[in-house]
Write a protein that binds this DNA or RNA. Structure first.
Lengths: 127, 127
DNA sequence: CTGCATCCTTAATGATACTG
DNA sequence: CAGTATCATTAAGGATGCAG
């Protein structure tokens, strides 16, 4: 056939590797942060509070490689590097901001469910 | 204020922990698999090809604890356990199936971007 | 069949020091 | 400032055996 049957439910399908990268907290937060426009490396690190420089650099390189983020380095001293979503990256804005909104919108239900579950099972539980 | 400002971009906000759980490949695939209706443990393991029993059990327990999946055990021999999305879990169907569709829809652009990136930088690169 | 417990391996993340 | 390199730590994942 002309159209390969890309299917994330197939263990060896390349689309699953792609899903694994976008279904990731750091990717989600970075894309959300870049949704309002380009940001410098340091601005991004501040926006995604708690991310380490190494993880941010690693994740940005992956996203650039996959064509989701573009990197613009200005030849200055001190250096300045801007990151922004590519057209492909823009298509991720909606689904990933939706995930972020879900987390904020339903966190209270989730916390309540956890309390309920822990009551039913036993206090010695996870995070 | 009455409404706490839940914000996933704040490192210590509980909503970020919640985002970290749903922005996860296994969670995404399990929710996608359960979108068509309840499945037994073994059916789920087959549906999410490549997942190990341990990871499936661990992830399902987490999802049950967060109120996203409900678990029904029938007192039979051999055992039978059904999993299905709760009403809360249903609200995750759309954003997570969207992520799965994105991975399948844009995988060719992603693969192309990777080739391009690797050409520009050097063949000795990542996965 | 389900799933927990255990052990082991690998991947992700963090801390620090250093360079252009 | 924006990284890279290194090391240390932690979390995720996989394999196996066993119990209800």
């Amino acid at each position: 056939m002309n159209v390969p049957a890309w299917n994330v439910m197939v263990a060896t399908c390349p689309s699953r590797t792609s899903l694994a990268k976008i279904a990731n907290k750091w990717t989600a937060m970075i894309v959300i942060a870049l949704s309002d426009g380009p940001l410098r490396f340091g601005e991004l690190r501040d926006a995604v509070a708690g991310i380490s420089g190494k993880v941010l650099a690693d994740t940005l390189r992956d996203l650039e490689r996959d064509g989701i983020v573009s990197r613009t380095a200005y030849d200055q001293m001190p250096p300045r590097v801007d990151y922004e979503l590519t057209p492909l990256g823009q298509t991720l804005r909606e689904p990933l901001t939706a995930l972020g909104r879900w987390a904020e919108q339903y966190i209270e239900e989730v916390l309540q469910a956890r309390d309920s579950y822990d009551d039913r099972t036993g206090p010695a539980a996870l995070g």
